[in-house]
Computed example of a mutant assay.
Amino acid sequence: MRPAASLLILCLLAASGGPALAGETACWFENGAVVVPAAIGGMAGDYVLDLSAPRTLLHETAAQRAGYAETALTLPVLLAGQRTAPGPVTVQDLDYRNVGFFTPILGVIGADILGRYVVTLDFAPCRLDLELLGSAGRPRGRGLGVTVVGGVATVQAAASDGVGGVAGAFALDTASNGGVRARGPADAPRQKPAGTLPALSLDGVLRRDLPAVVAGELPDGVVGALGVQVLAGYRLRLDPAAGRLWLTPVAGHEKGPDVSAGP
C-alpha cells in the first residue's frame, strides 16, 4: 500500500515549484514492482520505477484526464525532490502494466530520467535516493562495469536453460515479478512468471531455478533483464557517469538453497 503522506508532500512540492535538490523518497513493493510517488507535469500519483525502460511513459487515461490529446508530450518530472527540465514523455495505453496492482499506475519512470542521477535503491525497507551526477562519493570496492545499451544501463551476466547458454548485457528490471525477464510481447504484463530458468550467473554468484518472465520490449543488444527476485538481495547503487554498479548484499538474502559461489 502506498504511503499517503509521501504522496501528499509530493503534490505540495509539485504545486509550489520547489528547488531541484538531491533527495530521497520512500518507495514500496506492489505486484512484484518498485512503485514510487512521482509527478509528470501536474499528474501526481503512483508510478512504476523501471530501470530497464528506455523511455518514461504516461498512461493515456491520465493524459486525457489532464487535457492532453497528443501521444508525445514535453513535460517535467518530479521524483524524490528532483524536478527535471521538461523532456519527452510518451503517452501509451498502459492497462497491461496495471494488471494486479491495488492502486492505479499513472505511468513508468524510465532510464531517460533515472540516468541523470546516481541512483541508490534499498529494497527493505524500500527507499530511493537520487544524487546529482558527479556530486556523490563512491562506495568501497570496484563495482560492476556498466554499459548503456539502447538507453538503459546493463551489466554482464550469463544464463542457461540446461541445454544451451547465453551471455551478454542484462538490464536492471525493477518492475518484473521474477528473477529474470526475457524479451516478449510488448503489451504483456510482467507480473506472472512463465517458466523457470535453470541457471543465472551474476558477479561470480550462480543462482538456480529462477522464475522467468517473458514479456516486454528490450533494446537491441540487450540479452535479458535481471528482475527484483535477484536485485532485492542487494542494495543497488548505479552511477552512470562512473560506469559502475555497486551491489551490496543484504544480510540473509545473498545466500540460499539455490545460490552458490560461481566459477
Rank of each mutant, 00 (worst) to 15 (best):
V34A: 05
V34Y: 08
V35M: 05
V35K: 10
V35Q: 11
V36W: 05
V36F: 02
V36Y: 07
P37C: 00
A38S: 07
A38F: 12
I40Y: 07
G41D: 07
G42W: 12
A44N: 09
A44L: 03
A44S: 14
G45W: 12
G45M: 07
G45E: 13
D46N: 15
V48W: 08
L49T: 03
L49D: 04
D50C: 02
L51R: 11
L51P: 08
S52C: 11
S52P: 09
A53T: 07
P54W: 14
P54G: 00
L57I: 02
L57C: 02
L57A: 04
L58S: 04
L58Y: 03
L58D: 04
L58Q: 09
H59R: 14
H59C: 04
E60Y: 02
T61P: 01
T61A: 14
T61F: 02
A62I: 06
A63C: 05
A63K: 13
A63H: 11
Q64P: 04
R65S: 12
A66T: 05
A66W: 15
G67W: 09
G67P: 10
Y68N: 00
Y68L: 00
E70N: 10
T71V: 06
T71C: 01
A72H: 15
A72P: 04
L73E: 13
L73S: 09
T74F: 06
V77S: 04
G81D: 03
R83T: 13
T84C: 00
A85I: 06
G87T: 03
P88E: 12
V89D: 11
T90E: 15
Q92I: 03
D93C: 01
L94C: 07
D95S: 15
D95V: 03
Y96A: 03
Y96R: 13
R97Q: 14
R97H: 09
N98V: 00
V99C: 01
G100Q: 12
G100I: 09
F101Y: 14
F101I: 08
F101D: 03
T103D: 14
P104N: 08
P104F: 01
P104S: 01
I105G: 04
I105M: 14
L106V: 00
L106N: 13
V108L: 11
V108K: 12
I109C: 03
G110I: 04
G110Y: 12
G110V: 10
G110K: 11
I113L: 10
L114K: 12
L114P: 08
G115L: 10
G115E: 09
R116N: 13
R116P: 05
Y117F: 15
Y117L: 00
Y117D: 04
V119M: 10
T120A: 09
T120N: 07
T120I: 08
L121C: 02
L121I: 03
D122S: 11
D122R: 15
D122Q: 13
F123P: 06
A124N: 14
P125C: 02
L128S: 05
L130E: 07
L132R: 15
L133W: 07
G134Y: 12
S135H: 12
A136I: 06
A136E: 08
G137V: 02
